[in-house]
Each structure stands twice: as C-alpha cells, then as structure tokens.
Design a protein around this nucleic acid. Structure first.
Lengths: 245, 245
DNA sequence: GAGTGGTCTAGACCACGGG
DNA sequence: CCGTGGTCTAGACCACTCT
C-alpha cells in the first residue's frame, strides 16, 4: 500500500478497485472480445490480493456482462450482445445474420406430448391434446446463448416432427402450414440459470439470465406457437418499437 | 455426513443443497414475503457449513430473485415482482396500484442542463439546447425498486420544474402541456447495479439489475420524453403485447 | 500431467443498522 | 453497544480442460 512502484495503490475496496481497472482495460480496447484474461492465480500474484477477492471482482465484471467464463478453461472478454425484438415475427437466424454475426442452431429434442392443464389453457385445447415440443440450443459466433422450448399445436401442424429444426421454424410454419403471426404476447424476467438450462448453456448454476416467454397468435386468434427461452444475460439486448394503444 | 439425525445429509454440493432447501421452504409458504432469514452465523452453526459457503447459496437465491438483503440488517424473502409494460403510456403509480401494491416516488433532483451531443441527437435539437433532467427513486411497498433519469425538452415544457415530481409526470405532461405519446422505442438489458444506482437503491454494488431506456414520441414525431431506468432485477417482470407489423 | 476454475474451510477485522 | 452483513486472508483439495 505504501510502495509507489506502479499504480498499485488501492484507494477503496480491493475487488472494486480491480474491477474498475479491468473494466478500463476493456473499455480502452487493450483487451478485446474473446481475449483470455490472466488466470486467477496469476492475478493473485500480480496484484497481491487473495484469490477469493480476485474472484469477487471477476464476478462483478461477469454480472455487468463484460467478461464470461468457460468452465475450468478461463475468463474471457465478452463479445457485444445481439439485439432482439421479441415482438417481431422473424427468426433468430435472420436477425443474428443481419447484425453480422454467425448463428447456429442445435435441436436437443423433438417429441409430441399430451397437453398438461397449463398448456391446454394456453392453446385453448382439452387436456391431453397432442402438442409438439421442440427443444433447441442456439449459438452466436460459436457461443451458446440461449435454450428454448417451443410448443406448437399438433392439430395445426401434422407431421411437423419430420422436419429438421436446425433451420428456421418460422419458415417451416409459414411455408409448410400457412401459419403466420399477427400478435405476440411477450413476458420477460431476469432469472438465474440453474439446473437444466445452466447445463445446456454450459454455465455455472446461478449465472444471471433472462427468461422470455412468448405466445404467438395468428389473425384468427389461434395460438400458433408458445415459446420459453432462457438467455445468457450478457448475450442479448431487448429492443421493442410500438405504437401506443 | 454419516449421522442420520435430521435431513442433514448432503447429497451434492453444499451451497446448492442449502439453496434448494431454502427455496423449498419459500415455495411451500413456510417462509413468506418479507420474512427475515436466520443470520449467516446462525445458519453456519445450524448447518455445519462454513460461512463463505452459506453466502454462496444465499447469493444464488438472490440471483433467482427469491431473497434480498438489507445492508447489514439481514436477508429477507422477496415480495412478488410488479408487472410492467414499458410500451404503454400509463404511469408507474397507476399500474403499481392496479396490482394492489403501494407505490411511492421521491424526487432526487430536478435541473435544467444544456444538451450534450448524445441528447441533442436524441431530441433533434442543437447541442446546448436546454433540457430538463429529473432524477427520481420509486418504491413498491416501501422497497426502493428503481431509479430513473428523465429528460424532457425544455422548449416544449416551460416552467416544468415548478411542479412537484413526486406525483405522476404523465399527468403533468398531458394536462399541463397537452403532450401525449404515440410511439415508444424501448430497449432493455440486464446489467449490474453499480456506483450511483447501487447507492440510490441501497444495494450492494454488483447486484444484477435491468436497465431500461425509453424514447417516447408524440403523434408529430417529436421526442416527448427520454427515460433511463435502473430496476432491481427481482422487482419487475416485463410484459409486452403487440400486433406484428 | 499441468493448469484452470470450482468448492470449501476457519479464521479475522471492519462498517453500519438498529435497539 | 451488539449483531449484522461486507471484506479479506491463506490455505486446501477436487473436477475438469487442454495439450
């Protein structure tokens, strides 16, 4: 504390100090998206701070979306988020590409299940009615950013599961079944990624995320699609443009 | 681990174990919104786990929005979030009350400042044009849930700062100046509450939050209001209902 | 096998809240 | 003033990744 060697003087709290210093190096462009940070034990030695304190600072930067971790590999500078307008009926693939990023989709599972009371209510169908359930994981520039579970009414989309869902579901519904969307009901809430979602995104349980739930209706008021998405919190910015009713 | 005294056996990781146990007590209703948890040192003794590990579990529950802390007072069970539709031109006060909760507003500051280049661009006015800046803190049931900075064009709202802003700004703009909103551009991003925002909300720096930015236009396309809000992540759920263009 | 982050312990002192 | 959470230390071992 009394050695004036570098700029090592710590004015305030150690972890905020180190957070600010790293944030400045990222903002200045000295550290660029994708760059790997020094390991926690290296930082520990360099800064003369206990590892727990180092980690406290790293968690803050992670919460701010500036850095992220790859399990047991290291800490990396985050790429910029993609902008997402959940009210628009255009697919993930098209808006990610429009932003100059590389999207990818993986189908985790696809099956037809009987409607439970909640989904029966959503679709306005009897309990037990067949519904297609599709789970997908989606990537931007090679990083998994969201997992989603889509439910569609099997009565409107016979043989849907014969398709490949690694491409655009939007296109399949439109071209294959003449279904298009006239209205979206979207709800979003910050959440913690845990259990199945955390595993699928390969993040530590408890990382902040964003849960998005969307119900899409066609012009006749039928539910075309019911979608639950879990996003990495640092991967997305929501943007909505609306006329006031 | 080998004593079968209670249900104290730990199957997995200690902090996830304790998170799940507390989450279950909250879900079951044994712990209700507003209830205070046992202190960290009490939990340490009761569960036979180091305090750092206890805290790790508490942080997870905090990230999930199930509990929150009052600085150096203790941990409490969170109340349910309020539902917020940022595209609607109705005030905080009315939608909070409509949900059976008690809103409150505090004006932190109100001043007229010259437009910087960014705000000049937003308002389509020259740099240096006078803009009213209003900072407010808003509460639900006595808990501070958001801070906001509102900017309005002084040319459209002469003498605006003579009003009290502890009431509805919506009403003032409509009744006092005939300004109403036809279009909203809203952008949201998970963030970390730090510095000024964290202080104002009296939360620890680094707590996850939601940053909302809204630009409101009237029917003539003039910018009526530019608003930056920082919410506690556990206090709000966003809901949007739109027709597809 | 070496290096990384992930988990955990057992202490310590501090700053602030509230009775 | 006491109890609380907030910060910090200095270790340890584990599970996984990467090469």
């Amino acid at each position: 504390m009394t050695k004036g060697e570098n700029d090592q003087r710590l004015e305030g709290l150690h972890y905020l100090e180190m957070r600010d210093r790293l944030a400045a190096r990222i903002a200045s462009g000295e550290l660029k998206p994708g760059d790997k940070l020094a390991s926690e034990r290296r930082l520990q030695d360099e800064l003369g701070i206990a590892r727990g304190t180092i980690r406290e600072g790293l968690f803050q930067l992670e919460a701010e979306g500036l850095i992220y971790r790859r399990d047991r590999s290291g800490w990396y500078v985050s790429p910029p988020p993609v902008v997402y307008d959940p009210t628009r009926w255009e697919g993930f693939i098209s808006y990610v590409e429009a932003q100059g990023r590389v999207p990818a989709t993986e189908t985790v599972s696809a099956e037809t299940l009987a409607a439970d009371p909640f989904l029966a209510e959503v679709f306005g169908r009897p309990v037990g009615a067949p519904l297609h359930h599709i789970r997908r994981r989606r990537h931007v520039d090679g990083r998994a950013v969201l997992v989603e579970q889509i439910v569609v009414d099997a009565a409107l989309t016979p043989d849907l599961l014969r398709h490949s869902f690694d491409q655009s579901l939007t296109e399949i519904l439109k071209n294959g079944y003449g279904l298009s969307v006239a209205r979206n009901l979207v709800s979003m809430q910050p959440c913690a990624l845990t259990g199945r979602e955390a595993e699928a995104l390969r993040v530590k349980s408890g990382l902040p995320g964003l849960a998005v739930q969307r119900t899409s209706y066609d012009a006749q008021g039928r539910v075309v699609e019911f979608d639950r998405e879990h996003w990495r919190h640092d991967a997305v910015r929501i943007s909505v443009d609306t006329r006031v009713r």
